[in-house]
């Protein structure tokens, strides 16, 4: 039990629910603190009674067991006391449930539609006309209204330090409110088992000061710039048209699944929108750092890097990978 207290102080636990960083996580945490304290007290008392009874009444020569069958008054007390403790817990619990379920209102509330897919997250800032993946950018100090949409199978959206969990259920829309106090990167993960790469379905929330967030929004709203060097231009061409007839050796061109604003013909909706791919720190369910070597390895064989990946092995040649990587890295 002491281990709980210890681990709460540790600093190397970026995903810990015990270090809430937003109002919604804090409310849950406050309930936890009360409950945990009561639980520890009950544990000490009851476990203590048990151990005391065993020790005190252990068999010794000459000890006779007292033959009694019960004690009605004691038994009634033992029923009522736990019930009262639980009632004491029930009141703040129910209050917090309704509190957290309230939808944030106001003109400046940011609405984001979150979709969990095998095995990545799609974010649609409905009022801002931004579509991105895996890394959710939000301003600090204000509630973010997430509507959680299902797509293929059940997932669960969870950012422990910012609060709450919401299952992603196909055919249903649910909602969740998030808030971050301070700028920073908050880790999260899909929590509902969703298949081979359930473990690889991570996410990040990147909280900015409101001014920085404005900047991020306006950057994101720009379409992708046309590539300037020839290798990147070749990559853009491959992205849309593949090796020939919108095909690669192992499957259709990138554009059949991925969209890039500003690149003609790149309007796919199955995979992540890549318009500002190079501005992301991570990719593929936020499990790989976004750098050249990881990108090359990924393009060479996605299902090997991430089991069950919906992106097939396109059997790209080294030259094709060179060009595609060069192009993707221009998508700031």
């Amino acid at each position: 039990m002491a281990a709980f207290a210890l681990s709460a102080c540790s600093t190397d636990t970026p995903q810990s629910v015990l270090q809430p960083q937003g109002e919604f996580a804090r409310k849950a945490d406050a309930l936890w603190d009360i409950t945990f304290a009561i639980a520890i007290a009950v544990f000490v008392v009851v476990q203590g009674l048990l151990l005391y009874a065993i020790f005190r009444y252990r068999h010794k020569p000459g000890r006779e067991a007292a033959q009694f069958h019960g004690n009605t008054r004691l038994e009634i007390a033992m029923t009522i006391i736990p019930a009262l403790i639980l009632l004491g817990l029930a009141v703040p619990t129910v209050a917090t449930v309704f509190d957290l379920a309230a939808e944030p209102t106001g003109a400046d509330v940011i609405h984001i539609s979150v979709e969990g897919r095998q095995f990545w997250w799609r974010y649609d800032y409905t009022d801002l006309d931004i579509v991105t993946a895996n890394e959710l950018h939000i301003p600090t100090g204000q509630p973010i209204d997430l509507s959680i949409e299902g797509y293929d199978v059940n997932h669960s959206f969870w950012v422990p330090r910012l609060g709450g969990t919401q299952d992603v259920v196909p055919g249903r829309t649910s909602r969740l409110t998030l808030e971050a106090d301070d700028p920073g990167t908050y880790l999260g993960q899909c929590k509902e088992f969703c298949g081979l790469s359930h473990s690889n379905m991570n996410l990040r929330v990147i909280a900015h000061d409101p001014g920085d967030f404005e900047q991020w929004v306006s950057d994101q709203q720009e379409p992708a710039a046309a590539p300037s060097d020839s290798l990147a231009a070749e990559g853009a061409e491959l992205f849309v048209n593949g090796a020939a007839d919108a095909q690669f050796a192992g499957g259709p061109s990138c554009a059949s699944c991925h969209a890039i604003e500003g690149l003609d013909g790149a309007v796919g909706i199955i995979g992540p929108n890549l318009t500002h791919f190079a501005a992301r720190n991570t990719f593929a369910g936020a499990i790989f750092q976004n750098n050249e070597s990881n990108l090359r390895a990924w393009l060479a064989n996605p299902p090997e890097r991430k089991p069950g990946s919906q992106m097939p092995n396109l059997q790209l040649t080294t030259g094709q990978i060179d060009a595609l990587v060069a192009y993707l890295q221009t998508l700031e």
Partner: peptide
Amino acid sequence: IVPHDAQQT
């Protein structure tokens, strides 16, 4: 404790 269960679940 539903709000915290959301964290534990």
